[in-house]
């Protein structure tokens, strides 16, 4: 086995990196792959709560790097999916406690045992970003269809290129199809034209994402949800499958239904 290292990053904060990392990990592990995810957001750890593993943390990434524990001791095994592990970030440490070469060494130690190593990067262009990107084989950039998020995505995509980790692949998260339909949200095609990168996934805005994060049960555990389906599709694309992009149709409201009844075929 030799793992592929996937780093999930973004320019702007809060666009859905941690959500994406957790759900891709779940989707890959549910498909029988052996997955470890690493929280690269030192000082602001979150991947543990999104995965619902926060109560089982004993050691963290910085403990491993500073030799206070063995790598195995910092790996938390998920109880729902047998082949899913988490290495949590330190909550009370500074991001300078870890260097890019520490991350490369750490992932090299893990590669033999796993199919996938997923790294949840902090937003922005500082140390935490460079730590997370250093060991990456593929970098996924998450953005939202919004002016500031797209602008910052462009900047980070450029940086990934100059670090020779490109070309980055894009995940467009929180697409609200109703707003797209009425012309009030950038379409996936608009964003792709602006950023000129390869798209690997479109994730709809979905209340289930927040509901599942409330419970610590990533939405991909329930592939019937629209966001869950989207993450499963991305996981399959990562494995090299050719999965068509899903139709993000929302339930029609009463007026849309009426107008279809009046002019069938129209719309």
């Amino acid at each position: 086995m030799s793992a592929t290292v996937i780093t999930v990053t973004s320019g702007k904060g809060g666009v859905g990196k941690t959500t994406t990392t957790a759900n891709l990990a779940v989707a890959l592990a549910a498909g029988g792959q052996k997955v470890v995810c690493i929280d690269g957001d030192i000082g602001l750890r979150n991947l543990d709560v999104i995965l619902g593993l926060e109560n089982r943390i004993v050691y963290d990434l910085v403990d491993v790097v500073e030799g206070r524990c063995r790598l195995k001791q910092a790996m938390i095994r998920d109880k729902r999916l047998q082949e899913l592990y988490l290495i949590p970030a330190a909550q009370t440490r500074d991001k300078n406690a870890v260097s890019p070469s520490d991350m490369v060494r750490l992932t090299d130690d893990l590669r033999e045992e796993f199919d996938w190593i997923l790294i949840d990067s902090p937003a922005g262009i500082e140390r935490g970003f460079r730590n997370s990107v250093a060991p990456a084989d593929t970098v996924l950039v998450v953005t939202n269809p919004e002016v500031s998020a797209v602008r910052d995505a462009d900047r980070i995509i450029g940086l990934i290129e100059s670090e020779e980790k490109g070309p980055a692949k894009l995940i467009l998260n929180r697409v609200n199809q109703e707003m797209v339909k009425r012309g009030d949200m950038l379409t996936p095609a608009d964003v792709l034209e602006l950023l000129a990168v390869e798209l690997i996934g479109i994730v709809p805005e979905d209340d289930h994402v927040i509901m599942s994060s409330n419970r610590g049960q990533p939405v991909a555990l329930d592939p019937k949800t629209r966001a869950g389906t989207a993450f499963h599709h991305i996981a399959r694309r990562l494995k090299g499958e050719d999965v068509p992009f899903m139709n993000l149709e929302v339930k029609e409201d009463i007026f849309q239904k009426l107008s279809r009844l009046i002019r069938p075929g129209g719309n």
Partner: peptide
């Protein structure tokens, strides 16, 4: 075509996405 229905429903068609795209280009 569903515009008059949208109008009936009191919805405004603002189409702000075009502005977002034009501004982002620059």
């Amino acid at each position: 075509m569903a515009d008059w229905l949208a109008w009936l429903a009191g919805k405004k068609t603002t189409k702000s996405a075009g502005a977002a795209k034009d501004r982002l280009k620059l």
